[in-house]
Nucleic acid binder design. Structure first.
Lengths: 154, 154
DNA sequence: GTCGATGCAAAGAATTTGCAGGACC
DNA sequence: GGTCCTGCAAATTCTTTGCATCGAC
């Protein structure tokens, strides 16, 4: 059985985001730091709306436009990875530096719950394929779908 | 190098769709047949909008609501697979019966072009993972991303 | 002080839904 | 003929944009 992971806590990610932001010539502002912290404390891919609500609950609401703009900026800076599981909402999760551990997602077709996992064998196969591949491959994502255990039991 | 495929022409898919539709107790109507034919003659994943335009060009326009409803119905009947490459539009492609050949997609991060490919080694690795996996896995999708050759040259 | 960043509200795009009329079995 | 299906148009949902104001450097 593959390693079902309590997805990595990207220790250092928050700091790296701050640094990278400045290095790229952008301002380090309160909204951006707030968003960075909120994402850094999360364990799974988060949507713009979840982020917005969490910030509001935490007493530091941030305009939606800013949230979307920040998420997009961070994606461009390769600090966040954007994921789309086909339910019409974009999700974002911290991106680890080149060579860092990679994980993928299992999505329950019934309840929509997303679980992260990692698996060496598949990772190697994809890595190898990427080298054989005729065009330049920079990233890959794998999604497994099925009915999760709790939906089967329930 | 993996088999970059001129994605399968699902011969028989159109007929199967018709049959399956009836078997499941739905009416076989003109709009549904028209859509089925249009999809069956396509070689790659198609969006609702592309489908709509193609039908209009072909002189048999169909209301958007019907297109969306049909695509959703066909997905439920497992005649179509819905794909989402993260650009905010859903794509659909014919789904082959259980055990049929499987393919995946390479998406150019620059121009958005989608190429289909298949690869035995990766397929086996994923298949094997699915069995080891702690929860029931019914489907999987792999997306490779990178800058395609023409974007690199251009 | 300048220029980039924020937030509101309005615009946009993709998809869904309500409903009256039309098509299939 | 009854019921399912269609198509229009309006509604929803997620995301982007315009613009006046505010904050970081």
């Amino acid at each position: 059985m593959p390693d079902e992971i309590e997805p990595y806590i990207p220790s250092g990610w928050v700091g790296r985001a701050e640094t990278e932001l400045r290095r790229a010539g952008y301002h380090s502002t309160l909204p951006r730091s707030t968003i960075t912290e909120a994402i850094g404390s999360k364990h799974c891919a988060i949507t713009a709306d979840e982020l917005s609500q969490e910030l509001r609950r935490g007493g530091r609401p941030i305009g939606n436009a800013t949230i979307y703009r920040t998420l997009e900026l961070f994606e461009q800076l390769r600090l966040l990875r954007r994921l789309d599981f086909g339910d019409g909402v974009a999700r974002y999760e911290p991106m680890l530096p080149e060579g860092g551990h990679h994980h993928h997602h299992y999505v329950c077709s019934s309840c929509g719950t997303v679980t992260a996992f990692e698996d060496e064998a598949v990772e190697e196969a994809i890595e190898e394929l990427s080298e054989r591949f005729g065009q330049r491959v920079e990233e890959h994502e794998l999604i497994l779908r099925g009915t999760c255990s709790s939906c089967l039991d329930g």
